[in-house]
Computed example of a mutant assay.
Amino acid sequence: MENKKEKLLIQFNEAFANGNHQFMLDQVTEDFHWIMIGKKEIKGKTQFAEALKDMKEFNSELELVDVITHGKKACVNGNMKIVAPKAEDQSFSFCDVYEFNSFKDPKIKRMTSYVVER
């Protein structure tokens, strides 16, 4: 059975795959920090909203392999295939490490993403 944080992370990743940016914004803190290893960092909810606006619409297939939570920390790994209408399809595997702001009503405070193209 999924706990509250596991359910949140599954929905968060599905929202990313489906382009539901408002849901994603509703799940992060104002001081949200997203570190994309080897790429860039996004600091703050406002910067996160801008980054989401810049993402092109795409269809995707998402496979979540593991969703692990413990205390205020969590990890999700999986695979995604992006089918872009006017570009070449992309496939990658990812591992995201999360930190929540609290136990009771968790919001995502920090996310570190490791992505490998396949």
Rank of each mutant, 00 (worst) to 15 (best):
K4P: 02
K4G: 10
K5W: 03
K5C: 10
E6Q: 13
L8K: 12
L8T: 13
L8D: 05
L8F: 02
L9F: 04
L9R: 10
I10R: 08
Q11Y: 06
Q11N: 14
F12D: 07
F12I: 03
F12L: 03
E14G: 11
A15T: 09
A15K: 11
A15D: 04
F16V: 11
A17D: 05
N18D: 02
N18H: 11
H21P: 01
H21C: 10
Q22R: 13
L25S: 09
D26P: 09
D26S: 15
D26G: 13
Q27G: 09
Q27F: 03
Q27V: 05
Q27L: 06
V28D: 02
T29P: 05
T29L: 08
E30Y: 11
F32R: 08
F32N: 05
W34A: 12
I35Y: 10
I35D: 07
I35H: 13
I37S: 14
G38N: 15
K39Y: 05
K39E: 09
K40N: 12
K40T: 14
I42L: 10
K43R: 12
T46D: 11
T46I: 10
T46M: 06
T46V: 13
Q47D: 09
F48Q: 02
F48D: 00
A49D: 00
A51V: 02
A51D: 10
L52M: 04
L52S: 02
D54S: 08
K56A: 05
K56P: 01
F58A: 08
F58S: 03
N59M: 00
S60F: 01
S60W: 04
L62D: 01
L62I: 09
E63P: 05
V65E: 00
D66L: 08
D66A: 12
V67P: 08
V67I: 11
H70I: 12
G71Y: 00
